[in-house]
Nucleic acid binder design. Sequence first.
RNA 1: CGGGGUGUAGCGCAGUUGGCAGCGCGCUUCGUUUGGGACGAAGAGGUCGGUGGUUCGAAUCCACCCACCCCGACCA
Length: 576
Amino acid sequence: MRLSKLFARTLREPPSDAESISHQLLVRGGYIRQLASGVFSFLPLGWRVIRKIEAILREEMDAIGGQEILMPVVQPAELWQESRRWYDVGPELVRWMDRAGHDMVLAMTHEEVVADLARKEIVSYRQLPQVVYQIQTKFRDEPRPRGGLIRVREFHMKDAYSLHTSFEDLDRYYPIISDAYVKIFKRAGLDVARIEADSGMMGGTSSHEFVVIADSGENTIVRCENGDYAANLETAYCASPQNLASPLNVSEPSLPLEEVPTPHTTTIDGLAHLLNISTAQTLKSMLYSVNDEVAMVVLRGDRTVNEFKLPKVLGTDKFRLATADEIRAAGAVEGYASPLGLRQVKVFADQSVRWGTRFVVGANKDGFHTRNAEVLRDLGIAQVYDLGNVQDGDRCAQCGGRLTFQHGIEVGHIFKLGTRYSDKLHATYLDQNGASKPIVMGCYGIGSGRLAAAAVEQHHDDKGICWPPPIAPYHIHLIGLGLADPQLRQTAETLYQELLRARLEVLYDDREDAQAGVKFNDADLIGIPIRATLSPRSLKAGGVEIKLRHEPQSRIVPLPDLTAALGALVGQMIVR
RNA sequence: CGGGGUGUAGCGCAGUUGGCAGCGCGCUUCGUUUGGGACGAAGAGGUCGGUGGUUCGAAUCCACCCACCCCGACCA
């Protein structure tokens, strides 16, 4: 491709609304342009990157038996009503009506259609297992798109779905897809961590995320310093109370309850300060409205609720913090709530309450707290759950190592769905005995645009992008300097044609009106792995100057050897 | 949805007692220059986000609306 003809141009300054480094560099380098919030066009360079990523995805999915299909973006509401997601998913699912008055949706993912295809195509255990995948546009009306391509509303995703006769077969397959994912990210030049994750709206029994560690990432990742545990904060746990930060003495003798006046003290911090105790010596009681009932979640005062963990314990994901009226109606007082004397309210206690005694709790009376409360004796809490967020200072459940926090960009996510969709849509098969059984499903996604953005986050310097060679838009950035000289121009043109004939991917900066500095800066910004410069100076030195994007030094290769040398370099860089 | 911010040329920005629409970069033409974002000369480019209002007069003051960004809520 000739740079003089490229349908894009580079920008010296990033647009002011580009915050993340990948957003800035992809826009400046002429890869993407924003059309609306969370909606982007891919210019030729950007689209080539996406297609490189897709090629890797296809190869690796095919290698594990995947069959590529293409499913519609536009889908009838009936399917989503069958799966219940029509009712369960919020406004991020775009719903619309066609001219005939049918409710329709824009696909945000394709489990329903896969299940629908499966119930039509799969009738016998002999046809299983199956793995299908597609690379397709998705639309999710995200509440807040951000970070350029990192969180968008319209995006491309490789989504794969596996169909099995049993959970055992799904369990057998799950590591295969997981390994394929590791391979995909490695081939794309990304350093990713595989972590335990929450399955969110997808449902299912188990899930893992693949995340690129980056400060601009929006997911918080909890990792053990010894490397034997890694999880999304949404799901991270530290198992037993002994692993919590600042454990308290549990062998103190019991004392009777004692009310203390605490006027205008409705926060844990305020309470701890007033009584001159640590926040860990208090209990925090949060009231939630769950299906028109009020439930109380109790944690040690220094811990915070993890609302991703609540559905499992509450038995529903339809809950929200209770309003002041609801709190009052339940017999509690906002800012002074606790399970004390509220036997009619369901109480769900976090495991953190176990490790400590003589807690200060709300007295359910305006302006008063109660000292010396014991979890079992006074609050009637016999059972505890894991309801809190892991926090700084907590210990790993596996080895007791210190848990650390990092940010990451989620580039892939795999789920064991089980029979959630096949049950709802009646996707069944006949087993050896002629019995009808639900098909067991898994689903596996990778966002290609987000992967590209994550690659830039991970591979750049102050001049621009440093693409991992396998996903670079071109392999060689050929720069001609002094092209006004007809003889040099001719040499450069011949060289360009020769490289093309050798099937090398070349971006040729053939501009006559751009200065050397401009061309070098554009090359650094665009970030193609190999730069080859033909100029009077390089010719005098004996040929063409070759420089790798991520290395400072260059070398001269004689013209006759150049094509072979570049071919070899490219070959080395993109080995699998 | 809550909080904060921005909207003036392709990009970055200035523009307060309300009085002719500006600067840098980029773009066009010509000349000089030619290995790390050159120089000179001459040009093109604007519904000042929109609507309504106040005013002799609005980019500027007021009201409403829209778009985009950031933090949070939410979310593969």
